[in-house]
Simulated scan of single mutants.
Amino acid sequence: MPATAPNIENRTCGTCTLCCRLPDIDHFDKPANALCSHCIEGQGCSIYANRPSLCRDFLCLWRTDDSLPPEWDPTISKMMIYEQGPQITVLADPDHPEIWRSEPYRSQLESWAAKAEPSGGYVIVFCGEEVFKI
């Protein structure tokens, strides 16, 4: 399982807004797979400087794990990934529902799941209304 670290300097959000669209965010009454009212698609958060701590504290695995190769950039992989204790959570863009099943993603997700299993961890993938445990 990847280690969580501070954000990597050369990895920025860029034009990615998956964390503003894919998860449900109770603080904003935002359902999953709907763009946050504070997000400008392709640009980012319009309240970035004053965003709430739940947004400020979010650690995208792409931004914190420098072992992930370029194809894991969320703008390429169409997935946002983060750790929750022993669990790795994957939110796959429902506009690209099969991408997490393709290579190189599937084998990496299976590898993370195998490493996490002895300690009770796993990988869980959410894609639209579907949930898959690896």
Rank of each mutant, 00 (worst) to 15 (best):
T4L: 14
T4E: 14
P6C: 01
E9M: 05
N10K: 00
R11L: 06
T12C: 02
G14H: 04
T15D: 06
T15S: 14
T15I: 07
T17C: 14
T17L: 04
T17W: 14
L18G: 02
L22W: 05
L22A: 08
P23S: 08
P23W: 03
D24W: 09
D29Y: 00
A32R: 09
I40H: 13
G42K: 07
Q43E: 14
C45V: 09
S46W: 00
S46G: 13
I47G: 06
Y48Q: 11
A49G: 11
N50S: 15
S53N: 11
S53F: 04
L54F: 12
D57I: 03
D57K: 12
L59M: 13
L59N: 12
L59E: 11
C60P: 09
L61R: 09
L61G: 00
W62I: 03
R63I: 07
D65C: 11
D66K: 05
L68T: 00
P69C: 02
W72E: 09
S77G: 01
S77W: 07
K78R: 15
M79V: 08
M79T: 04
M79R: 01
M79Q: 15
I81K: 00
I81M: 15
G85S: 09
P86R: 10
I88F: 04
T89G: 05
V90S: 00
A92V: 08
D93S: 09
P94D: 11
D95A: 14
D95W: 00
H96Q: 04
P97D: 04
P97V: 05
P97E: 05
P104T: 07
P104E: 09
R106S: 11
Q108L: 08
L109D: 12
E110V: 10
W112V: 08
A113W: 02
A114W: 01
A114V: 10
K115H: 11
E117V: 07
E117M: 10
S119K: 13
G120Q: 08
V123M: 03
V125H: 02
F126N: 10
E129A: 12
E130Y: 03
E130V: 01
V131L: 06
F132N: 08
F132T: 15
K133W: 01
I134N: 03
